[in-house]
Amino acid sequence: MTTVDELVWLYAIRLGGLDAPAGPGVDGEPPRLLTEGDLVAVVGTVAAPRFDEAALAASMEDLVRLEGLARAHHAVVVEAGRERPTAPVRLATLYRDDAAVRRLLADRSADFLRVLRRVAGHREWGVKVYVGPEVAQEAPALPAPDAGRPGTSYLLRRRETRDRDERRREHARESAESLHAALVERSAAAHRFALQDARLSGRAEEMVLNAGYLVADEREEAFRAAVAESAPERIRVELTGPWPAFSFTDWEQP
């Protein structure tokens, strides 16, 4: 039972299963399960003063607080989905009480089952591709500094460096696109995220591909093999996951 002082945070919708994730959840609470037929809602009881409209609006503007919520939400979804098909719910979906969540499960069961059917037996993998090191080996000789015309040679050197970096990026983009095509062939669906700036990726190299792939369990080996076969001199590939199928839970998808 929840009172007016409490709200119910919805983490994920799952197909069956009796084990609640250990948590802790977004408010430090132990996650619980609400079951309606085949569907299980993974929820947590949170304190209303910290999760009402005003508090949430403030949390969304505070990156430290937001990071805490995002990591806790994500961790609970990962745990909830270890054994059973699970559809993650977007961050900050809250209800007044358990009854409201049960009503949701009943009213939209066909929609939830359709999404769960799509992700069942699949996991999401993330692939991030960065510009590789190739030019280190093929660097053409730069014009030597000219004592008579220091400005001219300075600008020529600068231009040469710029052209070389552009060639390198172009090669990396080509290789990233062919890798993406190979991965699409080995997955049920793909989604491209915006490229991350170096400050967020934590990598010095420029990112040229950031994508998620919904991969059937039995094709994971082929998928990973395709990742491993990418041209190492042109691109550096980072595989993340497995993720809960966050990127493949749109109602409209086939």
Binding site: V89, R90, L91, L94, R96, S201, S247, W251
Partner: peptide, 22 residues
Amino acid sequence: NLADILERVLDKGIVIAGDIRV
């Protein structure tokens, strides 16, 4: 990576109208 998590939990996942209007 936090950016990897944020681009999923904020932008992806099932969208359902909750009781609390964020």
